[in-house]
Amino acid sequence: MKVAVTYENEQVFQHFGQTSQFKIYEVKDGTVSSSEVVSTGGKGHGSLAGFLKDAGVDTVICGGIGGGAKAALAELDIQVLPGVSGAVDEQVERLLAGNLEYDPTIQCSHHGEGHKCHD
Rank of each mutant, 00 (worst) to 15 (best):
Met1Ile: 01
Lys2Ala: 08
Lys2Val: 00
Lys2Gly: 02
Ala4Gln: 09
Glu8Tyr: 12
Glu8Leu: 07
Asn9Trp: 00
Glu10Leu: 10
Glu10Tyr: 04
Gln11Met: 13
Gln11Asn: 08
Gln11Trp: 05
Val12Met: 04
Val12Phe: 06
Val12Asp: 05
Phe13Trp: 07
Phe13Ala: 09
Phe13His: 11
Phe13Pro: 03
Gln14Asp: 14
His15Tyr: 10
Phe16Lys: 09
Thr19Phe: 10
Gln21Asp: 10
Gln21Met: 07
Gln21His: 14
Lys23Glu: 15
Lys23Asp: 14
Lys23Asn: 14
Ile24Val: 15
Ile24Ser: 11
Val27Trp: 04
Val27Ser: 05
Lys28Tyr: 00
Lys28Thr: 04
Lys28Asn: 06
Asp29Glu: 15
Asp29Phe: 05
Asp29Asn: 14
Thr31Asp: 15
Val32Pro: 08
Ser33Cys: 09
Ser33Asp: 10
Ser33Asn: 12
Ser34His: 12
Ser34Phe: 09
Ser34Cys: 15
Ser34Met: 11
Ser35Gln: 15
Val38Ser: 12
Ser39Leu: 11
Thr40Leu: 06
Gly41Ile: 00
Gly42Asp: 10
Lys43Pro: 06
Lys43Arg: 11
Gly44Cys: 02
His45Met: 15
Gly46Asp: 13
Gly46Arg: 09
Ala49Asp: 06
Phe51Ala: 07
Lys53Asp: 12
Asp54Arg: 07
Asp54Ser: 14
Asp54Lys: 11
Asp54Ala: 15
Ala55Ser: 15
Ala55His: 13
Val57Thr: 11
Thr59Cys: 07
Val60Gln: 03
Val60Ala: 06
Cys62Glu: 02
Gly63Arg: 02
Gly66Glu: 02
Gly67Phe: 13
Gly68Asp: 07
Ala69Met: 02
Lys70Ile: 06
Lys70Phe: 00
Ala71Val: 04
Ala72Gln: 05
Leu73Gly: 08
Leu73Thr: 11
Ala74Phe: 08
Glu75Met: 11
Glu75Gln: 10
Leu76Met: 14
Leu76Thr: 06
Asp77Asn: 15
Ile78Trp: 10
Ile78Asn: 07
Ile78Ala: 08
Gln79Asn: 13
Leu81Ala: 05
Gly83Ala: 01
Gly83Leu: 00
Val84His: 00
Val84Arg: 01
Ser85Val: 01
Gly86Thr: 02
Gly86Phe: 04
Gly86Met: 00
Ala87Gln: 08
Ala87Leu: 09
Val88Met: 01
Val88Cys: 09
Asp89Thr: 04
Glu90Gly: 05
Glu90Ser: 08
Glu90Phe: 05
Gln91Arg: 02
Val92Pro: 07
Glu93Asp: 12
Glu93Pro: 00
Glu93Phe: 02
Glu93Gly: 04
Glu93Arg: 07
Leu96Arg: 06
Leu96Thr: 03
Gly98Gln: 03
Gly98Ser: 06
Asn99Ile: 15
Glu101Pro: 00
Tyr102Ala: 06
Tyr102Cys: 11
Tyr102Ser: 10
Asp103His: 04
Thr105Asp: 02
Ile106Glu: 00
Gln107Ile: 10
Cys108Gln: 07
Ser109Ala: 13
Ser109Tyr: 09
Ser109Val: 14
His110Ser: 14
His111Glu: 11
His111Val: 12
His111Ile: 10
Gly114Glu: 06
Gly114Ser: 04
Gly114Ile: 08
His115Val: 12
Lys116Asp: 00
Lys116Pro: 00
Cys117Pro: 05
His118Leu: 08
Asp119Thr: 08
